[in-house]
């Protein structure tokens, strides 16, 4: 199936520093550990089904979700995935 890239940039913050052994569970995302003791997962998310799938994975790992934010993206005019 054609996968024209409609993905949006997302930033997800969870409490605590994610164990490195779990990094592979979030294959497509950049993982940053902040000095404030949070983990930022950032990167492209194809659509809502993928986003919810990601949140489920975070839930199943027992992580505490602090924030989910879509990043403004100037290249993307498509507003459909609101």
């Amino acid at each position: 199936m054609d996968r024209s890239d409609l993905s949006q940039q997302y930033e997800i913050r969870v409490k605590g520093h994610l164990d490195e052994r779990l990094f592979h569970r979030f294959e497509d995302l950049t993982i940053t550990l902040t000095p404030a003791g949070e983990t930022i997962l950032a990167g492209p998310v194809i659509d809502q089904a993928a986003l919810y799938g990601l949140l489920n994975r975070i839930r199943d790992l027992g992580l505490e979700l602090l924030l989910v934010q879509r990043q403004p993206d100037e290249n993307k005019k498509d507003e459909r995935d609101v």
């Binding site: 569970r25 294959e27 089904a49 993928a50 919810y52 799938g53 199943d60």
Partner: peptide, 12 residues
């Protein structure tokens, strides 16, 4: 079929 992506190694 699923409403959310299942936690398989889809990227791979």
């Amino acid at each position: 079929t699923s409403r959310t992506d299942p936690p398989f190694s889809l990227a791979r």
